[in-house]
């Protein structure tokens, strides 16, 4: 059986909020190392991979591999009943029909209990190869969100160019064009506000802004986001959590 107690329900709320517009139904794969999820969007352009390590729970118990097939809309409805600061306990049997969720406030004088029906989801897992990326950019997640939102007003796609000292996001559309250039800089007082670039070789790749705007719904998970780029390889957009991550992969646009 699965029994996992999360100190802050907000963690799961934010994870679900981050991915629910990209995927509707998915399996939460639970085993002794934690809870993981991998799912593609309907059009097979993007892939989300989420991991919550057992270390993020206390206690955590899962003696067998259990796949929890969940409709994320339903889960969102139930999680709305939880405050971010509530303690959340997830429970499921070995071959479960439902997932049990208990929310307790920090004073422990209120507890709410919900059961959510599970579904059989036949999901194929993709093998994500280890990649040595040509460029890795870390920037504030709010900044990335703003850039994607702003540029999406002008165009469907953005070209991301990483060089040694800066990263440039540019687009062109019917009404004109726009670009945002971020120079590498270190903010010693607020390290989360820094922009850092690790470069093996310069890259320039074009991606759909619709998907990037969607990924940015994960911004609440982390103050920074990491973009990993290589020519003709999906973009990796990673939000790190205290004991896990949400990673999005986005297939590039190809051709002229």
């Amino acid at each position: 059986m699965l029994e996992a107690r999360l100190e802050q329900a907000g963690v799961l709320k934010k994870v679900v909020e981050a991915i629910k517009d990209l995927v509707q139904d998915c399996n939460f794969d639970c085993n002794d190392s934690g809870i993981a999820l991998q799912a593609m969007d309907n059009s097979h352009v993007a892939l989300v991979s989420m991991s919550l390590s057992h270390e993020g729970f206390s206690p955590y118990r899962c003696d067998r591999n259990i796949a929890l097939g969940i409709n994320l809309n339903s889960l969102t409805k139930v999680l709305r009943a939880a405050q971010n600061e509530d303690i959340l306990t997830l429970k499921a049997a070995d071959s479960p029909d439902s997932l049990n969720l208990v929310f307790e406030n920090t004073e422990r004088d209120r507890s709410s209990e919900y059961d959510i029906k599970l579904m059989d989801i036949d999901q194929e897992h993709l093998g994500i190869p280890d990649t040595d990326y040509s460029a890795t950019v870390v920037l504030p997640s709010a900044e990335f969100q703003r850039i994607c939102r702003d540029l999406s007003q002008l165009s469907e796609s953005v070209t991301i160019e990483a060089s040694k000292s800066s990263v440039k996001f540019s687009c062109s559309g019917d009404i004109g064009n726009g670009s945002v250039n971020l120079r590498q800089h270190q903010d010693l007082e607020k390290p989360d506000q820094s922009t850092s670039i690790e470069l093996v070789e310069p890259v320039s790749l074009t991606f759909s802004l619709k998907y990037l705007v969607n990924f940015c719904k994960a911004s609440a998970l982390s103050p920074t986001v990491k973009l990993s780029l290589s020519t003709d390889v999906p973009l990796l957009v990673e939000y790190k959590m205290e004991a896990g991550y949400v990673r999005f992969y986005l297939a590039p646009k190809i051709g002229d």
Partner: peptide, 14 residues
């Protein structure tokens, strides 16, 4: 115009 690639052409089925 650029065409949108599919994630499945980069990551194979397990």
């Amino acid at each position: 115009k650029k065409a949108q690639g599919s994630i499945m052409s980069f990551f194979g089925k397990k």
